[in-house]
Design a protein around this nucleic acid. Structure first.
Lengths: 209, 209
DNA sequence: AACTGTGAAATTATTCACAGCT
DNA sequence: AGCTGTGAATAATTTCACAGTT
């Protein structure tokens, strides 16, 4: 079956809903959809792409569905992540408290600024970019976050891929060219603000600020 | 005509492509699509939602299209933005250099941590959250970035809305409940990493890290 | 000749609606 | 009786393909 790509982040949302549902044994697609902000049919359909997890007339067993979703999403394990670019954003992500509870650990960080190399940030030593390949191969890391400038992003990504990385979260405002087998997700902060600007511009009384 | 929401960030991409196209007067949908990473038909269709900007046999006049896109997206002006939550991520966004060139300026910042209030970060004084309404009304600010924890996001958003904000970029990992007239865009870092984990888990040799 | 603008076709995603299980 | 799982229907989005314009 063909699984819509947009279903995956929704599964994450559902998983999050379950975390708050300790009060009862079972939860219905209706209840999940209510909190996740979509339709019940969507919840059932998304889950159905991956199997049959529910019990007719009861709903989904919370703990069981939690485990199933973890397995589907690959969050039933720890993921070590590399970070490249220890600027403001990179440093902030190094100290971001939201990753650990979800099983993500930034295990190493790289930069080519001599003033940053060697520093210990949140228990992670910043290394020279030239050490990337050796380090990532040694650690077997396949997931990376890119927070370098637009100008160096493509070359950094090329290095990451040579180092064995196949999944990249990119904050640099450029379209990265990668082979089909590599997954790149982009978070482009200015584009998000421009989307907001678009909506604001379309509201009636668009006066100032 | 009904404009697909996903067309808007694509327009931002096109606008960005144009910035690098100083070398020639005209650019074709083919060239734009090449760099933006989509099809030429998509480019033409997206633009056609908003008018006729091209010249048959020539393409689009770069400078003119740039202006048209700015007007569509609302980036033909400056936008003042409020930031709530001056933690690691919030501070990083305060110093993020990518906003200014696109016309976005974080004009004020709020937190309820006494150790942060009064601080001057990147020329912005951190204020107590209780001053939000007065400040935002006075400045006429309608766009905000939320980088508080999951627990306080909804109440912060309620305050923002009462203060006149109608467009919100939310980094807190919660589904926010807002009236229809309010635009909320979510950036959920853990969900993005989970998407990556999903793709990684699906590749053959999923051994370690 | 070259490229846009755009209906029509194809594809993808969502919602409906109900049979079937508990 | 209540809720899932799922084909079928609908809606949304993308791609095709070509008439029309310069």
């Amino acid at each position: 079956m063909k699984i819509p790509l947009v279903a995956i982040p929704r599964l994450s949302q559902y998983a999050r809903v379950l975390l708050e549902s300790r009060h009862s044994d079972y939860i219905s697609s209706d209840e999940i959809s209510e909190i996740a902000g979509c339709t019940a049919a969507q919840v059932r359909k998304d889950l159905a792409y991956f199997g049959q997890f529910g019990t007719p007339s009861r709903g989904y067993k919370v703990e069981e569905l939690k485990r199933s979703l973890s397995k589907i999403l690959g969050t039933d394990r720890e993921w070590n992540v590399a970070l490249v670019g220890v600027g403001n954003l990179g440093s902030a992500l190094l100290s971001y408290k939201g990753f650990a509870p979800n099983g993500f650990k930034i295990k190493c960080a790289f930069d080519n600024d001599l003033r940053k190399i060697g520093k210990n940030l949140e228990g992670v030593i910043v290394r020279d970019t030239s050490e990337m390949k050796r380090t990532l191969k040694a650690e077997g890391i396949r997931m990376a976050i890119v927070t370098v400038g637009a100008g160096s992003a493509q070359s950094v990504v090329n290095m990451l891929i040579k180092s064995g990385v196949t999944a990249i979260l990119n904050f640099a405002p450029v379209k990265l060219n990668v082979a089909r087998a590599i997954t790149v997700l982009n978070i482009d902060l200015s584009i998000e603000l421009e989307r907001l600007a678009y909506f604001l511009s379309r509201t009636k009384k668009s006066k100032k600020s």
